[in-house]
């Protein structure tokens, strides 16, 4: 037995519901934009700009919503949405009292339609922010090589790892010495970045089949004194924050 959904549609009612919801939404939005001046003391243009600016700050853990005068903008927007729903309910009640035949529509779909219209409206404004974000990223990353992009993101950590790789012909086991607490952010992330870009020539986080013969000194106080006698310095940054040392016996 196949289950084909019944397909009947009262397009006129659906159109009325959506049209009513749209009109209420636009009306309430207009009123809100004027009223916000008394609440937030911004001009309409400034408020719209601040609203748009608060909408897209991408992050892999959680994306915050911006604030307007220290008030979460999502909270403000939802207050607006619920007010719109309330006002549309009152308008419908009044109109259906005076013109019952024309406004014989249920409130439930209007309520849901206002929710969806608000969502689509917010998505539209948000899309402007996404486009700005894309334009900003394009300016940053277009016409750059992979190495230039990585250097832009990770700075000296990437540069040091990239230069270090050139000193070795094969893989080596390395040890990382640092005074930073690599058990906590942000030092933990710096450690991960160095390990990622040093690999495969120098393996810091996983054991390979080679004996440990490379030292990486990274933000270590009195770093030069920490280097054993049978090690030679291959490369160091000007401020000694990054030092690459290897056993005298290794082949390079």
């Amino acid at each position: 037995m196949s289950k084909h959904p019944v397909s009947f549609q009262n397009h006129e009612i659906n159109f009325k519901i959506i049209a009513f919801a749209m009109v209420c939404f636009v009306l309430c939005l207009t009123i809100f934009l004027f009223l916000q001046g008394y609440i937030f003391h911004f001009s309409i243009a400034t408020f719209i700009l601040k609203f748009k600016q608060s909408l897209y700050y991408p992050h892999y853990n959680q994306i915050p919503f911006g604030t307007v005068n220290d008030v979460n903008i999502q909270y403000v927007f939802m207050c607006f949405v619920f007010s719109t729903i309330l006002i549309s309910g009152i308008i419908l009640k009044v109109f259906s009292h005076f013109k019952p035949r024309k406004f014989n529509i249920s409130f439930a779909p209007i309520m849901a339609s206002i929710g969806i219209i608000s969502l689509v409206f917010l998505a539209g404004v948000q899309q402007i922010r996404r486009t700005e974000h894309l334009t900003y990223k394009k300016k940053m990353f277009d016409d750059k090589t992979d190495a230039e992009k990585n250097k832009m993101i990770f700075g000296s950590k990437y540069e040091f790892a990239r230069i270090s790789q050139k000193f070795f012909l094969r893989s080596h086991q390395g040890k990382l010495l640092t005074d930073l607490d690599v058990g906590k952010s942000p030092s933990m992330f710096y450690h991960r970045v160095l390990s990622y870009y040093l690999y495969p020539k120098v393996s810091v986080r996983i054991k390979n089949n080679y004996p440990e013969d490379v030292l990486i000194l990274f933000f270590k106080k009195n770093a030069l004194e920490s280097i054993p006698d049978n090690y030679q310095i291959l490369f160091k940054s000007e401020n000694n924050n990054y030092i690459l040392a290897a056993k005298n016996s290794i082949q390079r």
Binding site: Y57, I63, F65, F77, A108, M111, A112, G115, L122, Q126
Partner: peptide, 20 residues
Amino acid sequence: LFLSGNWNIVWWVMLISLIH
């Protein structure tokens, strides 16, 4: 769900839609 910038107002609209 309701006060972060992660989900637009999707979860709010889901709650409102439960009216159906």
